[in-house]
């Protein structure tokens, strides 16, 4: 019996089941972007240092460049495309990012949103120091982070009040 270099992967991404046959070495970020055409997830370093590719795997933020697509078989994934409501209404954190000008080029934004959405679920009333610690695994080269911190502090009570 040999292990094949290609496998069938079935995942639920943003609530939609998808099955593809992929090479076992395919990274989850490439699977999402190029197999499922969910290009909102960005790739910045492919060695786990920048956080741009962060997605939720069974609800928890992970680096999709440090996860194999085959490892997502049978699991649920949420990407940035899954944040806004189906009618296009922005998630409260997305709306806060816009209000506070928390993004410039927007390339790191998806990974940061996915990190912070999970953070806020666990820490509904964070202080600035906690927000900065939660952000520390995501690199942004444009903003200096200050407006992102503002966005989280703006969104937190709105989310908690929902």
């Amino acid at each position: 019996m040999t292990a094949p270099k290609a496998r069938s992967v079935t995942t639920t991404v943003n609530g939609v089941r998808a099955t593809r046959t992929v090479e076992t070495r395919l990274l989850l970020c490439d699977f999402l972007r190029h197999e499922l055409d969910l290009t909102g997830t960005r790739v910045g370093c492919e060695h786990g240092a920048c956080g741009a590719c962060t997605v939720l795997l069974d609800g928890l933020p992970v680096r999709s460049c440090l996860t194999l697509a085959v490892q997502a078989d049978g699991h649920a994934i949420t990407t940035v495309e899954g944040l806004a409501a189906s009618d296009g209404t922005l998630h409260p954190l997305q709306a806060a990012f816009r209000e506070t000008h928390a993004l410039q080029c927007g390339y790191c934004t998806a990974g940061i949103l996915m990190t912070l959405v999970a953070f806020l679920a666990e820490h509904p009333t964070p202080n600035e120091a906690e927000v900065r610690a939660a952000l520390s695994g995501n690199l942004c080269r444009c903003t200096g982070y200050q407006h992102m911190v503002d966005a989280v502090l703006l969104a937190a009570p709105r989310l908690a009040g929902k």
């Binding site: 292990a3 270099k5 496998r7 090479e23 070495r25 492919e46 060695h47 194999l68 085959v70």
Partner: peptide
Amino acid sequence: MKPAPFDYWTP
């Protein structure tokens, strides 16, 4: 920066 091919086992 993509991994070289490998056999993948899920025991």
